[in-house]
Every structure is written in C-alpha cells, then in structure tokens.
Design a protein around this nucleic acid. Sequence first.
DNA 1: ACGAACCGTAAGTTACCACTTACCGTTGGC
DNA 2: GCCAACGGTAAGTGGTAACTTACGGTTCGT
Lengths: 101, 101
Amino acid sequence: MLDALGDRTRRSILELLREGPVTVGELAARLPVSRPAVSQHLRVLQESGLVAHETVGTRNFYRVDSRGLTVLRDWLDDFWGTALESFAAFADKESSDGTAD
Amino acid sequence: MLDALGDRTRRSILELLREGPVTVGELAARLPVSRPAVSQHLRVLQESGLVAHETVGTRNFYRVDSRGLTVLRDWLDDFWGTALESFAAFADKESSDGTAD
DNA sequence: ACGAACCGTAAGTTACCACTTACCGTTGGC
DNA sequence: GCCAACGGTAAGTGGTAACTTACGGTTCGT
C-alpha cells in the first residue's frame, strides 16, 4: 500500500487520474517514461487497491479506486490517534515529574 | 514525504515510536537491522518532518512529529476530495449520456 | 480478412537505496 | 583524566526495482 506510494512516477500517475479516467497511452504521453513502464506501475497501483481499470474496446481506462484511499485514511487516522495519546501521556508524565523547566 | 513511508523499516520505526520517545539504541535493539541503519532511517524521517529528536546526555530520544502527519493528512484529504468530485462528475456524464446500462 | 491501434508481458540492464563495517566525536561515570 | 557508552558519518557492497526494447495478443476500421 504505502510501498506503492513510495514512487514518484506512481504518484504522478495518481495525480493525472485525479481528474477522471485516463487511458494507458494518454498517461504515457504525459509522463517522461515509456508506455510499458506505465503499465507496470499501474499493475502495482492496482494490486494496492489504489486504482481500477475498465476496458473499452482496445483502450483501457484507469481511474482512482476509493478502496485504497480508504485503507490509507484508516491507517493514518489510527496512527494519528495513538500518536496524540502517547504524546499527551508523555506531557502528563513530564509535568507530574516536575521535570518541565 | 511519502518516499519516507515507502520503506518497511522506517514504518516499523514509526510504529515503535507510536507509544512514546525511544532512544536510537533501543530502536536498533528491537529491529532486525544495525544501529547505523536506524540512524540513517531516522535522518530521512526527520527530513520529512515525521519525527523529531531530543538529546539527553549521550542518548538521543526520537518521537513522532505531528507536523509530518498533518502534511500527510492534508494531502490525503485534498486528494480524496478531488477524486470524489471527478468521480461524481464522471457518474453524471455517464447517466446524462444514457450510456449507463 | 487484413492492417493499424492499443496494451500487457518477458527479458535484460542500470541505477538507486538499504545495509554493513569501520571510524570519530561527545557525554557521563569512576 | 580515562574509559565506557551512545550515536552520527563515511565508504563500500548487494539486492531490488524502475526502466528500456522486443514481442505477442486483442479489438476496431475498412
């Protein structure tokens, strides 16, 4: 999931898909890499649930998949909550210990 | 930012830091990598604003930095919003075109 | 039915990055 | 002051993944 977002080109692909479905060739035309490279990236993004594709004739339209975004959002919310909790506990311990300057 | 999260070890470090500040040696002891490797990862995480450190004597305590999480959350919210918009527009176009089956 | 367009896959190369060992500076304890 | 503990940095290595070219399969147009 987050591994898929760890690549610049893949993030660029997602940015291009933000505005709606785009074909593979169109993506390759707007990116500084070859079309097969785009296909490979799309495969990774799809396996992560971040994009979905829809075949129309010979063309393949890719779009953002909200499922992947949901997983990402849930992970972030969970992490955020725990981090704030521990920070609050840490601050409490600090003040109760009188170690705060 | 997202590059920093694209690595398994770095995500493990963040998981360990969720519960509060931890020293470098402690992190290395709980991870299957050497201490210098941890230092290098912490450098990347810090440059991304995801962690912050606080030196106490010879020990260096690292903790989660909420600034980085905020940036990540904002990015995700922005992306999420646009994706939903474009999806709604796409659905509208579909139905008005009568292309919906 | 034939050619063109569109795309996915395979094989191979290259570049990058995660990791290690070795080294050095800083701080605390005795 | 000296030794030990802690941690950051440098240099070098290995593995992985991002990219290329080449190929094959499928669909549409004529």
